[in-house]
Nucleic acid binder design. Structure first.
Length: 796
RNA sequence: GCCUGAGUGGUGGAAUGGUAGACGCGUCGGACUCAAAAUCCGAUGGUAGCAAUACCAUGUGGGUUCAAGUCCCACCUCAGGCACCA
């Protein structure tokens, strides 16, 4: 046989030439859309982790095509982003050149692996034909009041010289470069994502996401139901509002805390406390979120000198400021109930504030009691449980106009501006006379200029700000002098709707036609990394829901199932990285062992959804399996029927492989095929049909060699054939070995026939010597026969 | 601290409540070979035993059940995510 790489090349060319995997919009076959997250084409080339998830989805796609479905399995490039920009800065080339190179490498690598993507639908988020529509969609957000400019304290990375989203700077550290993030005030484009909090929560019911994925979304949205309560400041007209989920503990509120940034702080602070308060506030601005949370072991804060009036009992209670209260959540102010909240308790102990228990149970001299209990010291609430007390208190507050029921979400609006060159320009123009004016839609795309300088400015302006030719323009409204927005969009923008574009990739009239979207209906199966299941999925769902609300997509949720894969770790069980020297390059493996072996190994290595270490030894085992399949061809004799003695195992194998490929049981699908091949190997001869069956079942995972062997038998290509159909009746063994237990312990195994009556089985079991020994002299109290599974004899 | 996973041989991992360790890797022994590679055959959880077989064994401790890796309760460890969210 010829060299394995030549065979692989031959079939890759065949598929390309014959457009074997083209998805036809409008075809009468049942549409099925399998999507795998499009990669960021980094300079590192394809990772063996990519190979794992692409092979998995490829196997599904190939099987489903054979089952007669019209499978859409596309691939593209998420190519905007900081790494390409940094690479360009370093090497003094335009990022689009670097991206072009990287895409070429990625695509070549994917093609040598034989993935059945419909390459006719390929695009990159950096193509003007694509980002034109990303910009167009931004304009729709703007025109529907969903995009606005606001000055917000933002996370600033001094190294990247860029603003980061809360998400990107999780933990106070820049996700890109790892530097410490500081706080800075900046005017930013924002998307009103918080308006969609409730819909994003509800929409989950219309999806088939895995439970853990749904939970991730729910946690991120962070809904909590509570009440807002107004507190008057003693001795002046001012008042402030707090948010609480436990308004039933209001009688135990012995102080209030405002966030240091709260607007009221300056107004209510008394002369004697001014200096202290100012110092504390200043200290807080120096700290970023990371430091604030890190130093949370010890509560800090200062007294403002002012007092609030507890609205339920008119008690004067002190007002403090402390950074344990966040300005960005709720109202930026809390009522503190030290008897029943850990944080408030700690604070109260430190500042010697009164602690009044209002719930029965626990010992508050030692620790706060946060459980459920009947109310005490609470006037109208005394004797009630938590739920009743909350309801009664809300009723009381609303009746007396002291507060209202209120729902809060952790999810905030999406900060949409980035001070970078390599992103979609935001198509907005600032005119002294007219203010912010959107570009005319006909003028899109707004292209990135072709210049050679991409360094951000030191004052945090985007590199685009330096390109005056580009920046200076005229106002679309009044025709006067105006300036373009120089910020660009975040990386998440282009990936929030790419799956819609794949339905109609080359449409130059619309981002995708309604007809095409109605035909494909939705992404039926979406595979991606666990790290993207919270953020990316939430952004994409928000984007789609907005488009739905303005009538541009056919349904509110366009993604049905979301699944995630485990990582491929280095053989040292660590994440692969250059510095650790544990990186495996797929090119090397393909060259030495062939794409089919690599694909088979990555599917066999372990549970698809779990991380798994690389093992070249195990890879060789899969090579051996492929070689065995090739060798089996020598046993083939003519015959267009299955060998009689193989019928059961063949039908069983079809059923198992088919079910496993649909439910991500790739490793057990391969083990089934290994068992089948071993069975064939035991025989002197197998029929052509037996052999073709094995090749067909293995084809989704190892498509090249199976096509080659199939062709040598004289059959039409497998990718143009049908998936075999199994006969349920023939998946059952006539005879089976089952265990015989005595008191739950296996003492023998017996052969039973499918037609054996219980009497016969009983008789067989009781004939076994070892069984007789264990029941000897005892009384049989129960005789349990589970057909085809086990026998258990209970004796006393 | 909270949420989500996961703890099974030397190793990657299999097991709709029904013979734990499928399938693969490694190791050991054997065949073929001048030799090696490749391939093939056999053995391989632990302890005891020549063996039949017995006992132990799925992170720990309880429980439910004729039967528990699987279900329930408590706890321990590891990984990932969130983290002062009132």
């Amino acid at each position: 046989m010829r060299n394995i790489n030549e065979i692989e090349k031959k079939w890759q060319n065949y598929w390309e030439k014959n457009k074997s995997f083209k998805a036809e919009t409008g075809s009468s076959k049942e549409p099925y859309y399998i999507l795998v997250e499009f990669p960021y084409p980094s300079g590192q080339g394809l990772h063996v982790g990519h190979v794992r998830s692409y092979t998995a989805q490829d196997a599904m796609a190939r099987m489903m095509r054979m089952q007669g479905k019209n499978v859409l399995f596309p691939m593209g490039w998420d190519a905007f982003g900081a790494p390409a920009e940094q690479y360009a800065i370093k090497n003094h080339i335009h990022p689009k050149e670097a991206v072009k190179e990287n895409i070429k490498t990625f695509k070549r690598q994917m093609q040598t692996l034989g993935f059945s993507f419909d390459w006719d639908r390929e695009f990159s988020t950096t193509d003007p034909e694509y980002y034109k529509w990303t910009q167009w969609q931004f304009l729709q957000f703007y025109k529907h009041g969903m995009a606005y400019k606001d000055t917000v304290p933002v996370n600033w990375c001094p190294t990247c010289k860029s603003v980061l989203s809360n998400e990107d700077s999780a933990g106070g550290v820049c996700e890109r470069c790892g530097s410490q993030v500081v706080q800075k005030e900046k005017s930013q484009w924002m998307l009103r994502m918080s308006d969609y909090a409730e819909d994003l929560l509800k929409g989950l019911d219309d999806t088939n996401f895995a439970e853990k994925v749904k939970l991730g979304q729910i946690n991120w949205i962070g809904k909590s139901i509570g009440a807002e309560v107004d507190f008057k400041v003693d001795g002046c007209k001012e008042q402030f509002t707090v948010f609480t989920t436990r308004c039933d503990t209001l009688f135990g509120a012995t102080y209030c805390v405002l966030a240091p940034e709260h607007k009221l702080v300056d107004k209510i602070t008394t002369k004697e406390h001014k200096k202290e308060v100012e110092e504390y506030k200043h200290a807080c601005t120096l700290k970023n979120d990371m430091e604030r949370t890190e130093l949370n072991k010890e509560k800090t804060g200062v007294f403002t000198g002012a007092y609030a009036i507890n609205p339920v009992n008119n008690k004067k209670i002190p007002i403090y400021i402390s950074d344990y209260v966040l300005a960005s959540y709720g109202t930026g102010a809390i009522m503190a109930v030290p008897a029943h909240d850990d944080r408030d308790y700690e604070f109260a102990k430190k500042f010697n504030i009164e602690i009044i228990p209002v719930l029965e149970g626990g010992d508050i001299s030692k620790e706060p009691f946060v459980g459920d209990g009947l109310h005490i010291n609470s006037g109208l609430l005394d004797g009630l449980n938590k739920e009743d007390a909350i309801n009664k208190m809300i009723e009381f507050l609303e009746k007396n106009k002291l507060g209202t029921k209120k729902v809060n979400y952790k999810m905030r609006d999406w900060i949409f501006s980035r001070q970078r060159f390599w992103g979609e320009p935001i198509p907005m123009i600032y005119c002294e006379k007219c203010g912010w004016v959107p570009m005319n839609e006909e003028d899109l795309p707004l292209l990135l200029p072709d210049v050679a300088e991409y360094e951000p400015t030191d004052n945090g302006e985007s590199p685009l700000a330096k390109i005056t030719d580009w920046v200076n323009t005229t106002c679309p409204k009044c025709g006067g002098k105006a300036r373009r927005e120089t910020d660009t969009m975040p990386n998440w923008a282009g990936s929030s709707w790419y799956f819609l574009r794949f339905m109609d990739s080359h449409n130059d009239k619309e981002f995708a036609s309604m007809d095409a979207m109605k035909y494909w209906k939705r992404v039926d199966w979406y595979n991606g990394g666990m790290e993207h299941t919270a953020r990316h999925l939430l952004y994409a769902r928000f984007w789609v829901q907005f488009l739905y609300n303005i009538g541009l997509v056919p349904s509110k949720e366009m993604i049905w199932t979301r699944v995630s894969h485990g990582m491929v770790l280095g053989s040292d069980n660590q994440k692969m990285s250059k510095s650790k020297g544990n990186v495996i390059n797929p090119d090397d493996i393909v060259k030495e062992y062939g794409a089919d072996t690599l694909r088979t190994y990555e599917m066999f290595m372990g549970d698809y959804q779990m991380d798994c270490p690389w093992s070249t030894e195990s890879l060789k085992g899969c090579k051996r399996f492929i070689d065995k399949v090739i060798r089996l061809k020598d046993k083939v004799v003519d015959g267009e029927e299955y060998s009689t003695d193989l019928e059961v195992i063949i039908n069983k194998s079809i059923k198992k492989v088919q079910n496993d490929l649909c439910s991500m049981g790739f490793n057990t699908a391969i083990s089934t095929l290994m068992i089948l091949a071993n069975k064939y190997d035991e025989k002197d001869h197998i029929t052509k049909k037996d052999y073709k069956l094995l090749l067909t079942l293995l084809n989704p995972i190892a498509p090249h060699i199976t096509e080659e062997l199939n062709e040598e038998l004289g059959y039409n290509p497998i990718c143009e054939s049908s998936w075999p159909i199994y006969d349920e009746a023939k998946t059952i063994d006539e005879e089976k070995e089952i265990g015989v237990q005595v008191n739950g312990k296996v003492r023998a195994t017996i052969k039973v026939n499918i037609n054996d009556s219980e009497e016969v089985i009983k008789e067989k079991a009781l004939k076994e010597e070892n069984v007789i020994r264990h029941i000897d002299g005892k009384e049989i109290v129960k005789f349990i026969i589970i057909k085809g599974k086990i026998i258990n004899i209970v004796v006393k």
